[in-house]
Amino acid sequence: MALAYFVLGDADRGRANLRDYYLAIGPDHADQIARSAGTHTVALKETIESFAAIGADELILLPGLDDVNEVDRLAEAVL
């Protein structure tokens, strides 16, 4: 099982949200997590494929924005 973040709406705001959330563990780690968020279809598909390649059979994709439309954007991007 693994998890990954995505931001298909406002990428800058979504990455800022993730950075703020993880800042307590240090700015370097927070920046790394924020940068790892998939922000377009190709990146999300590559993320899914890379986790499958290492044997993850469950992948939880979490939005970096509090916008319910992110779920629809995700479905359009990867299904």
Rank of each mutant, 00 (worst) to 15 (best):
M1L: 13
M1R: 12
A2L: 09
L3E: 13
L3V: 07
A4S: 11
A4V: 00
Y5D: 06
Y5C: 11
F6H: 01
F6L: 04
L8H: 03
D10G: 07
D10A: 10
D12E: 15
D12Q: 14
D12I: 09
R13A: 14
R13P: 00
R13Q: 12
R13I: 08
R15H: 01
R15D: 01
A16P: 04
N17E: 10
L18T: 02
L18A: 06
L18H: 04
L18N: 04
R19C: 11
D20T: 14
D20I: 07
Y21W: 13
Y22Q: 08
L23W: 09
A24C: 07
P27A: 13
D28E: 15
D28W: 08
H29N: 12
H29Q: 14
A30L: 07
D31A: 15
D31W: 09
Q32P: 01
I33Y: 06
A34H: 03
R35T: 02
R35K: 11
R35M: 03
A37S: 08
G38V: 01
G38L: 05
G38F: 02
T39S: 14
T39P: 01
H40Y: 12
H40L: 08
H40E: 15
T41C: 10
V42C: 12
V42W: 13
K45M: 06
E46D: 12
E46S: 05
E46R: 05
I48L: 00
F51W: 02
A52N: 13
A52Y: 01
A53Y: 00
I54A: 01
I54C: 03
G55E: 03
G55F: 02
A56Y: 10
D57W: 12
D57L: 13
E58I: 09
E58M: 09
L59V: 05
L59Q: 03
I60W: 08
I60C: 02
I60L: 10
I60F: 07
L61C: 08
L61W: 06
L62I: 15
L62M: 14
L62R: 15
P63V: 05
L65V: 02
D66C: 06
D67P: 02
D67V: 04
V68K: 09
N69R: 11
V71C: 09
D72A: 05
D72P: 00
D72I: 01
R73K: 13
L74Y: 04
L74D: 04
L74Q: 09
V78L: 13
L79N: 14
